[in-house]
């Protein structure tokens, strides 16, 4: 791989990383508004407020970058970057269509899950370094929640990898068959729920529960650093949707996959992102203990059962 190719691939991935989260964010603005009987942004950019998030970005860039006096300065300042870069790295190995991927990694599933696990450090660092009790509480909640949901997520992903017989993301899509929608369904449900919990979005937004602990780990953040955390959240939705598409929905597989593979991937991922937004509008927040109960008493057993079913099936058929 020449240097030029590396640069081009990096730039393309970065561009996708900066554009797709904004698209998801704008969709959330409009979808949430219409689900609540409102119109949402209508002015920014002229046509139905399409430039609302650009305007928000400009606003955030103008704000003062405040670091609390008691804060652990370096950790505090580094936290948004940690949560943002992790998703950027994860995005770079997700395949768009056959052969089109930022960087082809052999054990892609492992790599993506590991990269996203690093991103978890962001809220943790922010909560710890802010020198604010609400931030600390939020950080602790985030740590407990993300640790609990990492396990069912890995179990569900492992089931798919086992069924496909490979850890490569492209390999999993090649092996995918529509029948997977049926016999990997419990795993898919577990993965989707765990993904929403990983993203700390409603109904699993206890770390940021704004009615309980202000804004959790982000309480002390302002300006661009705050915007980076928000961007990380929406980048997380993009990464999770793409990952769900690749693992459970067959990525670019569909009619005219040779020519329209990229479109299939994007359409499926958009549908998953829409569902994530839909959950946010429709459901209230779980309580902290209900969250842990759901993870350990429902999702982990379900994930284990799925893994067992997949294992038995694979042993019987090969």
């Amino acid at each position: 791989m020449s240097l030029l190719e590396v640069v081009v691939r990096s730039v393309v991935v970065l561009a996708a990383f900066l554009v797709l989260p904004l698209l998801v964010g704008q969709t959330e603005h409009k979808v949430m508004a219409h689900m609540q009987g409102r119109l949402g942004p209508m002015y920014a950019g002229g046509f139905h407020g399409w430039a609302q998030l650009v305007a928000d970005g400009v606003k955030f860039a103008q704000k003062e970058d405040v670091t609390p006096r008691e804060a652990d300065r370096w950790v505090f300042r580094l936290a948004p970057a940690v949560s943002l870069v992790a998703y950027l790295v994860a995005l770079s190995v997700l395949p768009l269509t056959s052969g089109v991927v930022g960087a082809d990694v052999g054990a892609g599933v492992l790599f993506v899950l590991a990269a996203m696990a690093v991103g978890i450090l962001g809220p943790l660092m922010a909560g710890w370094a802010s020198a604010n009790k609400y931030s600390l509480l939020g950080g602790m909640r985030a740590a407990a929640q993300l640790l609990s949901y990492e396990l069912p997520m890995v179990l569900a992903a492992a089931s798919v990898a086992l069924a496909a017989g490979t850890l490569s993301l492209s390999g999993i899509v090649e092996q995918w068959h529509p029948l997977w929608l049926v016999w990997q369904l419990p795993g898919a449900v577990v993965f989707l729920v765990a993904a929403v919990a990983e993203l700390q979005r409603v109904p699993f937004d206890m770390p940021m529960a704004d009615s309980e602990i202000v804004f959790g780990p982000l309480t002390e953040y302002t300006g661009l650093r705050f915007a980076f955390f928000l961007l990380a959240e929406y980048a997380g939705i993009v990464v999770m949707s793409l990952l769900f598409t690749v693992l459970f929905l067959g990525g670019w597989q569909g009619p005219f996959a040779a020519a329209l593979g990229w479109l299939w991937t994007l359409v499926k991922a958009s549908a998953v992102a829409f569902v994530v937004i839909w959950f946010r509008v429709a459901w209230p927040r779980l309580r902290e203990d209900q969250l842990q109960r759901l993870a350990w008493l429902v999702l982990v057993p379900l994930g284990l059962a799925q893994l067992a079913i997949t294992g038995v099936w694979v042993v019987l058929t090969t």
């Binding site: 689900m35 119109l39 209508m42 429709a282």
Partner: peptide, 21 residues
């Protein structure tokens, strides 16, 4: 209850809003 919530929001989404512009 969970699915009722989803159905309600979906119905609201396809209903024109009453916002007075």
């Amino acid at each position: 209850g969970i699915f009722k919530g989803l159905a309600t929001t979906a119905r609201a989404m396809v209903t024109p809003s009453h916002t007075a512009e």
